[in-house]
Design a protein around this nucleic acid. Sequence first.
RNA 1: GCGCCCGUAGCUCAGUGGAUAGAGCGCUCGCCUCCGGAGCGAGAGGUCGCAAGUUCGAAUCUUGCCGGGCGCGCCA
Length: 542
Amino acid sequence: MTGPLHDLRATLDAALADLGLPAPKSAPSLEAPRQADHGDVATNAAMLVAKAAGRQPREVAQELADALAARLGPALASAEVAGPGFLNLRLADAWYIEALGTVLAAGDSWGGGGADPVRRINLEFVSANPTGPIHVGGTRNAAYGDALGRILSFQGHAVHREFYVNDYGSQVRRLGESVQARARGQEPPEGGYLGAYVTELAAQIEGAADLPVDEVAQLAVELMVAQAQESLARFHVIFDRWFSERDLHEGSPTPVEHAFDVLEQQGRTFREDGALWLRTTEFGDDKDRVLERSSGEHTYFASDIAYHQEKRERGFDLLIDVWGADHHGYVPRMHAAYRALGGGADELELLIMQFVHLVEGGERGKMSKRAGEFVTLDDLVGDIGVDAARWFLLARSHDTTIDLDLDLARQQSSENPVFYVQYAHARIASVLRKAGPELVAQALAAGDVAPSEGLHPGERALLRRVAELPDEVREAAERRAPHRIASYALETAQLFSAFYRDCQVVGAEPQAEAFRLRLAVAAQRALASALDLLGISAPQEM
RNA sequence: GCGCCCGUAGCUCAGUGGAUAGAGCGCUCGCCUCCGGAGCGAGAGGUCGCAAGUUCGAAUCUUGCCGGGCGCGCCA
């Protein structure tokens, strides 16, 4: 990955090497300081290096300043030592102007690429039981998994998206029994499914009252899966594969039997009390787990192991599963099982999504799944729309529970952050329309132009943020943290608004107009990319 | 009891070793002869749950406590 900031970091590393001191243990910071009067970028490099060298940090910082001045030449306006040994750098307009050229040259791909090495990743998410509609928890999982997939793909990884369909076992039979009961005008049995959708399924399945219950169950599951596919597609979430759990129990040997063979060859299984066990405690689990009950039936865990073995054999470098918080207790045994199969500890990543509470009128809504009253993906999207739903589900870290304020999400004004970001994008489009395609094309071809009076601080700040996109994408990818992209989009929109307020674009003196049109295009692309990574639309007008 | 996640402004949350801790909402006060006012600006508001420790430096790392959520089946 290249870019102006990447180049600056490389220069910093080189300047540090010039000093002939031992390399720092951790990478030096290179960030915009909070205080504007601390310059454009600041680094703690001298403090990190000075300790190991037994030198005074401020002294080392001054030597580093000299080395950087020599390497950067006119691109560096000033370098000052501050505080305990920070080095505050002020970059010349020339640096910014060249940076803008680099950003624009990358076109729509600015911020992307950089995957090294490129990995083949299987990303499994949602995987909601097909015994009911997808609810808000599954919706968060869908938004998160999809955005993570978009980010990893943007970086250049080969991402395969998969939904594991639990269409096998006792719960499916229970769904069939519930549907059949409704078809007969009866209440579902104890422990059955109570939602209104069960009655709808009964009406959709011809002969549901009289068909064998297993057949009713299969038809019901097929309808539920089709419904999930439609809902997710409307939510802009598309999977490469819907993997059927049933397939793990077919063939000879079945994938489950095959997985058992693998585990046995690895010497990880044993029989006790008539059951087949997996010694997961060898890999850090609290207790060993049953694979095959004394009754001869396989556990759900057995299916899951077989599924992961199957994914392994398809040749991925990395398996990522996105699970709901209610399954987090299951993480240690799955990791243990994967290693028992012979897999590497770093080949399987299990990510846990925390819960979502919907808030309306300042109160948390009650979502009792047992009573069959819960807010579904379709309900949420119908209420606040795809873009707002995705924004509010993605703007927070996946490992914190969130309260989603429906009143705020519904607002079509700048009080709503997603609207604010989209508005900034549309406003840039409006400015570019005002300028007209010819003027914009000329500006893009103009090369290193700049306002004759020098750059405005608002121009520097916006450009700086646009230049940071690759770093933000990399951080979001490495930390599996799409919410960073949402923060980035909001900040970039704010910086554009400030720039727009302070700097007249269309009608400014020709040099300034050309530079500002170039900057507007770059900012628009950065906003569009950020929104696209979140699966949110970037409108030309609103 | 054990395990995982969380505790930062009135509310919802960013911030995984750097300087005076940020944003959105809410609240108060301003701004329409000016490229989109569906907008913009300013302000008030904080013992970063508590206490020790590591460090030149801790919201961030360690340990212990307190509080909240979730999970601990030969269920799926």
